[in-house]
Computed example of a mutant assay.
Amino acid sequence: MAVSAWRSVGCAGLALLALAVPAAAPLAREWRTVRIATEGAYPPFNFTDADNQLRGFEVDLGKALCARMKVECVFVQEDWDNLIRGLRRDRFDAIMASMEITDERRERIAFSRRYYRTPPVFMIRTDSDVAGVSPEALKGRRLGAMADTVYATYLQDLYGADSTVRLYANQDEASLDLALGRLDAVLGDRIALSVWLKRGREASCCRFLAEPPFDPAYFGEGYGVGLRKKDDDLRQMFDDAIASIQADGVYDEIRARYFDFDVK
């Protein structure tokens, strides 16, 4: 056999051998330390205390997740506008800064499963006879929400045909009209409304009635840990840890320090 022919057959054989032997899978990273970025300016979720230490629901939750993942947890403070950029440039490994899971953000980063959501809730006057939150139960009622929010859209789409929907420049204006008897109910973010109810004079005016059925099409998917797309192993670790602490009660112990209602 000519040398050139032998080389051709030999190269072809090597090529077939390469196809037959699967490429070695990239080695999974052994995570020992996870650097978590947060803003530190959004209480009670993340903030700095008098000693300039990071505190808050997300900081406590992050520490519990790291303990469950058996890794060292290092929190770093970062301006909101730099969070995604810093993650992608490997300045830290994860974001826990009340970053909502959206399709737009998914184009740049990955997300863990949801670790909290802000429940929508209907608030009514303390002396109200409203008994339910379905469109039928609120038929003919005057309903309020902050304009240009998911709550406004929800009321307009599901209640607007049979109820009067009034929109306000901010949530406080809607809540005040409820207190003054100009509305029968308002729909808003339960966390924000809880703060409003604790301000003093208005606290006795109103009460929560119930949450509407949670619909991600209106209220979003919630808030997750932001991660680099390449770190799928770390995403799975966070997913497993979130599920674990929610199942055994650790999550609720942390949540109760900040909220008297479920945010899962």
Results as ranks from 00 to 15, higher is better:
Leu234Tyr: 06
Leu193Gln: 13
Arg228Asn: 12
Pro212Asp: 03
Leu138Met: 13
Gly226Pro: 04
Ile245Thr: 03
Gln246Tyr: 06
Tyr151Asp: 06
Ser244Lys: 13
Val225Ile: 14
Ile245Ala: 02
Glu173Asp: 13
Asp184Tyr: 08
Tyr168Gln: 07
Pro216Trp: 08
Lys139Pro: 00
Pro212Lys: 00
Tyr251Ile: 08
Gly200Gln: 09
Leu180Thr: 07
Asp148Ile: 08
Gly181Phe: 05
Gln156Pro: 03
Arg182Pro: 01
Asp129Tyr: 11
Val133Lys: 00
Met237Ile: 01
Ala217Arg: 13
Ala243Pro: 00
Pro212His: 04
Met146Thr: 13
Asp233Ser: 14
Asp127Cys: 07
Asp148Pro: 00
Tyr159Lys: 01
Phe208Glu: 06
Leu143Trp: 01
Gly160Gln: 05
Gly160Glu: 04
Gly226Arg: 01
Ala241His: 03
Arg190Phe: 02
Thr164Ser: 12
Val133Gly: 15
Leu180Asp: 11
Ser128Ala: 13
Gly132Glu: 04
Ile245Arg: 02
Asp232Val: 15
Ile191Trp: 01
Ala137Leu: 04
Ser204Arg: 13
Gln171Ser: 15
Ile191Tyr: 01
Gln246Met: 15
Glu211Ile: 06
Arg190Trp: 02
Asp239Val: 12
Leu234Gly: 03
Gly144Thr: 07
Ala217Trp: 07
Arg166Met: 12
Gln236Phe: 12
Pro213Gly: 08
Val150Gly: 04
Asp239Ser: 10
Ser163Thr: 08
Cys206Ala: 15
Val195Trp: 11
